[in-house]
Design a protein around this nucleic acid. Structure first.
Lengths: 156, 156
DNA sequence: CTCGATGGTTGAGGTGCTCAACTTGTCGGG
DNA sequence: CCCGACAAGTTGAGCACCTCAACCATCGAG
């Protein structure tokens, strides 16, 4: 009935989970050192220029109501400010405070260091790896985008 | 003070997260189709021969008390049985029921199909990718194991 | 102006996880 | 034989994260 499973693909999937899991664990650890819960850290890491909350929700691929709580936390910690926007008074822009900038820098620094430590391969292999994984990620993302677009557009 | 970030490594980390995220999302989706919450599905997928609960906890890298709840769910759905072990009456072995075996097969089939669809590269590239990612996963896992061992051994 | 869509918030509800405490059971000395 | 250390599993408290439905304020087009 079903094809025999391809062991190469299976190994590949395992490795991807493994590596992503390791990176994620390290990220959470550095976040914890900075006194940040994972979700807030994740949000902070992807916050540079002032951006509306909606944008952050899209980036995190989660419900807008979820972002409210996360930002509440960041604001309580004094890392971020909600800045009402005069041009469209519905939106609030998220602006990093000094402390926010500082922690964000530490966070990114730390996670990048972890990545460097983990991806310990000859330069040539790294480049090859980036190319192959990049192709897959792009294709997968493209499929996802196409699907979401298709879902939201009634006609063709 | 800190080195310039290596864009190759940064891209690589992004891609890994991207790909893992896509695989995970697909897995959760197939799980949902089978009426299983993600954690129960994950547990079920890694359950073949009868094994003590502790083993599952180790595999999932989570607290034993957590496994109790997950197995409760699987048992409530009639997918798994807790089988007391006569040789060591503290442990309970987890045994799949018929239905459990069936759903597990479907689950693995589905997630493997997703992986095949995602890793759509020429065979040669797939092999190369497996080799490189495998090396990294292994090295990272080794470091993790070494660390946990070191942590649990007071001396040396 | 009216109406539909959009940004953001709130509240209810559910999952997944950890930690501390406890029960039951195993095992290795004194 | 009994005792103390340790392991498997469970329970309960508590937290983080997430979604959904309902809602308010606002925008923008007809």
């Amino acid at each position: 009935m079903s094809e025999d499973p391809d062991p190469v693909v299976a190994d590949l999937a395992d490795s991807v989970f493994q590596v992503a899991g390791l990176l994620r664990a390290k990220f959470d650890a550095t976040a914890a050192e900075l006194g940040l819960p994972p979700a807030q850290a994740m949000a902070l890491a992807n916050l540079s220029a002032p951006a509306p909350m909606r944008e952050l929700a899209d980036w995190l691929r989660c419900d807008a109501s979820n972002v409210t709580g996360i930002v509440d936390g960041l604001e309580r910690r004094g890392l971020v400010r909600r800045q009402p926007n005069p041009e469209d008074r519905r939106v609030k822009h998220l602006v990093l405070t000094e402390e926010g900038e500082r922690k964000r820098a530490l966070l990114r620094q730390g996670s990048h260091a972890d990545a460097v430590a983990l991806f310990a391969l000859p330069r040539k292999d790294l480049l090859k790896l980036r190319e192959l994984l990049g192709r897959i990620a792009e294709a997968g993302l493209g499929a996802h985008a196409a699907r979401t677009v298709r879902d939201s557009v009634p006609g063709a």
